[in-house]
Structure formats: structure tokens, C-alpha cells
């Protein structure tokens, strides 16, 4: 057991909580498990790869345009497909199936365009990382942790203090009532998809910069993000962060003491334990909801 484990936990925690938050934003207002969000994560990485490697665009511009395009894509999918489904007051179940379908289509499109092999964007040579208290950490990993922490804090402020963030919370807590109070819920949902997808794109870019990306990579990360959200209590932002920390710590300890193949199993065990004994997350607080 060494300090290195804590670094690993910090690194995974930053990416998974970032993915979790991006999903939190769209789930809070959209109210369904958007499986296609995992393809959005992957696309963030793939677009950056595409602009940077195929067209030789400089990395910052590639990253910026990838975030914009992926954000818009998430917004369009919501606008053209799920808005209509919602209008016809489809049940959440149908929305999930539709989302699964879109995920399969998007994943296959990625496969066709970029192939199934792993893609990576290399910044500098692969070499021994910086030594920090006896542990190794590479430059890009430091960037990941810093960027994620900044984005987590910004999202918290965004939800709490901005006009749009407050509207999102209002729609999340009661859509009909917020409509009565003059908030256009469709508009707010669209925005949350845009912001959520852009955050997902950033997560995807950080993943492709540190490790690599295959068409199915996004799904694994989204799964961890969703588990973190459920552990923390659905709709609870701070709970999500704590949930991500618990999940990642448990996974790394099981990889260290037992085997890496148990990492996914650990996630499932934690998920099931929480669903059975603490379905509202470890804080156990029921969300206050104003009923009409």
C-alpha cells in the first residue's frame, strides 16, 4: 500500500465525478437514463482526435471545437427525438429503449468512421511520471485532476447561483409547477442537455489524452458515473461527489488486494447493496417535492 494508490484514486475520482455530473445535469431535468450519453462521452474524444490528427488543427482549438460540436449534438438529439417523445408523454421506459437504440447507432457510426482499434492523442513522449511523495504522476494526469476539480466547483456554482442553474433545479423538482411559474421547461431541458453533453465531451477528451478511446469506452465510464449518482442519492449533487469517491476507493482497493478483474464486480455489489438497503443514497434524505 502506498501513496500511489491515493493518486490513482484521485485521478479516477476526478474523471468519474466529471462524467457523473454531466449525467446528473441531463438526468435531473430530462428524468430518464440517457444511455446514449456514453456515445457523447466517446465522441468528445473522437472529434478531438479527428481534428487534431486528421486536419492537423492545434490541440487547444481541436478541444474547443470538439466540446462545442459534441454539446450541440447532445442538444440536437434531445431536440429532434426526445422532446417529441416527451410531448407524446411517452413513459420513461420507452425513452430508455429509444436512448439505447440511439446509443447503438452512434457507437456503430463511430466504428465505421474511426474503426474499432484504440485511439489516443499523445502529448509529448511516454516517460516516467513526476515523482511526488514517492508516487508517480504524469503532467497530463495533473491537468486532469485540476481541470476536473475546477469544473466540479463551477458546476456547483452554476446550479446554485446562476439563473439557468436555478431554473434547472426548479424543472427538476417539479416540471408542471415551474411551467405555471413561467419557466419554459422544454427550453431548460434543452440547455441542460447542451451543458451536460459539453461536460461529457470534456471528460471524453481527458480520457483520450490520458489513456485511450474505443467506441465502447464511454459506456464503462457512464456506468461508474451512474453508480456514483445512485450511491450518493439521485438528485443530490454533493452526494454524487461522495458516491464517486466511495466507488473509486472500493474499486482500487479490490484491484490492489484481490484482482483487477473484480473492479466491475465491486461496482455492481456496491450498487446492489445501496439499491436494497439505502435506495435513497447514503444521506437517505428524501427530496422535498412540492405536490400540486
Amino acid at each position: 500500500m502506498s501513496f500511489q494508490i491515493i493518486i490513482n484514486i484521485a485521478l479516477q475520482f476526478s474523471i468519474i465525478s466529471l462524467v457523473g455530473i454531466s449525467f446528473f445535469l441531463i438526468f435531473n431535468t430530462g428524468k430518464y437514463y440517457a444511455i446514449h450519453h456514453s456515445a457523447i462521452i466517446a465522441l468528445g474524444g473522437y472529434f478531438t482526435f479527428f481534428f487534431h490528427r486528421k486536419f492537423g488543427v492545434s490541440l487547444p482549438i481541436s478541444i474547443f471545437s470538439s466540446i462545442i460540436i459534441t454539446g450541440l449534438l447532445g442538444l440536437f438529439i434531445e431536440f429532434f427525438i426526445f422532446k417529441n417523445l416527451r410531448k407524446k408523454s411517452s413513459e420513461t421506459f420507452f425513452m430508455i429503449i429509444a436512448s439505447l437504440g440511439i446509443y447503438v447507432i452512434m457507437q456503430n457510426l463511430i466504428s465505421i468512421f474511426w474503426g474499432d482499434d484504440s485511439k489516443t492523442i499523445r502529448v509529448g513522449e511516454v516517460e516516467v511520471g513526476n515523482i511526488f511523495l514517492g508516487a508517480y504522476i504524469t503532467d497530463i494526469q495533473i491537468v486532469i485532476i485540476i481541470v476536473s476539480i475546477i469544473l466540479i466547483v463551477l458546476s456547483l456554482f452554476f446550479l446554485k447561483y446562476t439563473n439557468l442553474g436555478k431554473k434547472m433545479q426548479a424543472v427538476s423538482s417539479n416540471e408542471e409547477l415551474s411551467n405555471i411559474f413561467g419557466i419554459n421547461s422544454n427550453h431548460v431541458i434543452l440547455w441542460s442537455f447542451g451543458v451536460g453533453s459539453a461536460l461529457a465531451a470534456i471528460a471524453g477528451i481527458l480520457i483520450i489524452l490520458d489513456t485511450d478511446m474505443t467506441p465502447s469506452t464511454g459506456f464503462k465510464y457512464l456506468f461508474y458515473g451512474v453508480v456514483a449518482m445512485i450511491i450518493g442519492g439521485v438528485g443530490n449533487f454533493k452526494g454524487l461527489i461522495a458516491g464517486a469517491l466511495i466507488l473509486v476507493t472500493a474499486q482500487n482497493l479490490s484491484a490492489y488486494y484481490i484482482d483487477s478483474k473484480w473492479m466491475d464486480a465491486t461496482a455492481y455489489v456496491i450498487l446492489i447493496l445501496f439499491l436494497v438497503w439505502k435506495p435513497l443514497g447514503f444521506s437517505g434524505k428524501r427530496l422535498r417535492k412540492v405536490e400540486i
Partner: peptide, 15 residues
């Protein structure tokens, strides 16, 4: 040590 295929993070088992 073993890992599932398509794993991305090997840092902990490598340590």
C-alpha cells in the same frame, strides 16, 4: 493479476 478485456486503468495492479 488478471483484468477484464477493454480495461483502461492498470495503475493499481501495476503497483
Amino acid at each position: 493479476k488478471s483484468f477484464e478485456s477493454d480495461t483502461k486503468d492498470f495503475k493499481t495492479i501495476l503497483i
